[in-house]
Amino acid sequence: MEYCFGVDIGGTTVKMGLFSGEGELLEKWEIPTKKGTDSKPLLKAVGEEMEKCLSRKGIKKEEIAGVGMAAPGPVNEEGLLRGAVNIGWGDVFLGREAEKIMEIFPVFIGNDASFAALGEFTFGAGKDVSSLIMITLGTGVGGGVVLNGQVLMGKTGTAGEIGHTTINPFETLTCNCGKKGCLEQYASATGMVRMAEKFLQESNKPSPLRQLDKITAKDLWEQAKKGDELALDITKYVSHLLGMAIANACYIVDPEMVVIGGGVSQAGQFLLKMIQEAYAQHVFPHCRDKKFALAKLHNDAGIYGAAAMVFEKK
């Protein structure tokens, strides 16, 4: 039996998983992310963890079919990671460097959101469809596209970056990416909080949100579920922008399913219904019945997608 490792490098932790050749997750764990301008210390730590895992399981390196590695940044066709801002890295051929340090071959790398989409497509919410777009609503807004079983990376590795599509050309504040008016500025967890604060300032409507010292996206959706009028105004506005962005994306790639993941997706079917209704307002009538689903793999989507990439390439 061959095995593979799935690795998901995040800003806080590196998630790791050992998979069987049949795609079964045999063991998973995580380690703190070593930040800095040099990627080598982190890769060395990941390699050491893999050695420990193989020793525990009594598996030889020769039995490892490869490593899939999800990175928090765009990865181009040549395998160049074009920087990982949240970690401190600049441009690096991460796969090549990982192979030298870990001495496990081959190592396939890709964008974390794209790999999460591949994970949901192969093992999660989308395993019964032919194509999907996945939107992750967390600290930022990530996105990935899988068409006819193939994850879409693009020439520069930015395919699926729906969070940085422009939905307000008149925005004056600058997004973390350097642009203005990105979807992420409104529909990420931090963006939703910004919208909540704006609505609270501009409205006189009473709301339990006014009693909170620090509002979170979770607070916002909980109050909306309870029927708070102001919270509903805010969530409807955010959902309107999400629906518009998803509709535009679907016109380009026309997937069978839209998957919503990330921490905000814990708001569940209430959030999904609002987004789906907003989407329906922005598309042709024959596109309105597109499937919408919540992500099933949650924080494990990245390692599942990374493993799926190994299986696909092998």
Rank of each mutant, 00 (worst) to 15 (best):
G6C: 06
V7W: 05
G11P: 09
T12M: 15
G17Q: 05
G17T: 07
G23V: 05
L26I: 03
E27L: 06
K35G: 14
T37Y: 13
P41L: 06
A45E: 15
E48Y: 04
E49P: 00
E49V: 00
M50K: 06
K57L: 02
G58A: 04
K61F: 13
G68A: 12
A70T: 09
A71P: 00
P74A: 10
V75S: 05
N76I: 05
G79Q: 06
G83N: 01
I87A: 10
I87R: 11
G88S: 11
W89L: 05
F93C: 09
L94M: 15
L94E: 07
L94P: 05
A98V: 01
E99D: 03
I104P: 08
P106K: 08
G110S: 13
G110K: 08
F115E: 09
F115I: 14
A117N: 02
A117K: 00
L118K: 05
L118G: 04
L118M: 12
E120R: 01
D128T: 13
V129K: 06
S131K: 07
L132K: 04
L137T: 02
T139C: 10
V141C: 08
G142N: 08
G142F: 04
V146I: 10
N148P: 03
G149N: 12
M153R: 15
G154D: 10
G154H: 05
T156A: 13
F170I: 03
T172P: 04
T172L: 12
T174R: 13
T174W: 03
N176A: 11
C177N: 07
K180R: 15
S188P: 09
S188W: 07
T190E: 10
T190H: 11
T190V: 11
F199M: 02
F199R: 05
S203K: 07
S203T: 07
P206H: 01
P208D: 09
P208F: 09
P208A: 10
R210Q: 03
L212V: 01
K214C: 05
A217Y: 04
L220Y: 06
K225I: 13
K226D: 07
K226F: 02
G227W: 11
D228N: 04
D228V: 07
A231D: 00
A231M: 01
Y237D: 07
G243R: 02
M244Q: 08
I246L: 01
A247G: 13
N248S: 13
C250A: 14
Y251L: 15
I252Y: 11
I252Q: 09
D254F: 06
D254N: 15
E256H: 11
V258C: 04
G263T: 08
G263V: 08
S265R: 09
Q266D: 04
Q269S: 12
Q269D: 12
L271M: 15
L272V: 08
L272W: 09
K273L: 09
K273M: 06
M274V: 05
E277K: 12
A278S: 15
Q281K: 15
H282F: 14
V283A: 11
F284V: 14
P285H: 08
D289K: 14
K290Y: 00
K291H: 07
F292K: 04
K296A: 10
G302I: 01
I303F: 03
G305F: 02
G305D: 09
A306H: 02
A307S: 13
A308P: 05
V310F: 00
E312P: 00
